[in-house]
Amino acid sequence: MKKLEGIYLVLDPNQPWLELLEKTQQALKGGVQLLQIWNHWPEQVTEQDKIKFCQDIKKIAQTYQVPVLINEDWKLAEKCNLDGVHLDKVPEEFELIRESLKSKIIGLTVGNQEELILWAEENQLSYISFCSVFPSSSVDTCELVHPESIQQARKLTSLPIFLSGGINPENLEKLSHFSFEGIAVISGILNSTDPEMAVQTYLQQLK
């Protein structure tokens, strides 16, 4: 498995799918290195619709050798043979998930809770993610992350660290004193008229 780093694009399937597939392809061309399908489906969507969408995303991503994860729904990840799952919290059935997704990517949102960082390290997860670094309308369920939580994380774990929530090229420099592997983005790329260029702008600021 290649190193987990760079731009982690979160896809919102509540957006029009044809347009989203096109924007995903452009973003991958721009240099996105990890994809996650957010568990935010339109109400009328069937299980078969979800499977078709996941397979379409995976087909595009395979061209660029980019892993595709799904948010929370590990059973759907298993059905679609996706590359893993991102968990918003520690599930009761974690051992079952780990057994079902053997050798796959498993990430966890940790927020300001040190015990979650230690749990992720102890259970040898693939990465941890902080949400939300800045206020953001698309991640309004996350608490704002304390800067000291990010600083402490590097002392507690050697896992890759991703930062998310309201990050744009203008405020990215405010994160330069932290140690992390990448950033997760939704609207900063998907709402752009040129997703490929948006990704490249983020990557230039990351460097």
Rank of each mutant, 00 (worst) to 15 (best):
M1Q: 11
K2P: 09
L4D: 01
E5W: 02
E5S: 12
G6D: 02
L11C: 05
P16E: 13
W17D: 07
E19W: 11
Q25H: 10
Q25E: 15
Q25G: 00
Q26H: 12
A27Y: 05
G30W: 02
L35W: 01
Q36N: 10
W38Y: 11
N39R: 09
H40K: 15
W41K: 04
T46P: 01
D56C: 03
K59N: 13
I60H: 07
A61R: 03
A61Q: 06
V66G: 02
V66K: 00
V68T: 13
L69F: 02
N71R: 02
D73F: 04
A77D: 03
D83C: 04
D83K: 08
H86D: 06
D88Y: 06
V90G: 07
I97M: 09
I97K: 13
I97C: 05
E99S: 15
S100W: 09
S100T: 15
L101A: 03
G107D: 02
L108R: 12
V110S: 01
G111M: 04
E114W: 08
L116C: 01
A120F: 05
N123M: 08
Q124D: 07
S126A: 00
S126V: 04
I128N: 01
S132A: 15
F134P: 06
E143I: 03
V145P: 10
P147G: 06
S149K: 06
S149P: 02
K155I: 05
L163R: 02
L163T: 10
I167H: 08
P169Y: 07
E170M: 08
L175F: 10
F178C: 07
F180D: 09
I183D: 10
A184N: 08
I186P: 09
I189C: 13
N191V: 06
S192E: 14
E196F: 00
V199E: 14
Q204H: 13
Q205T: 14
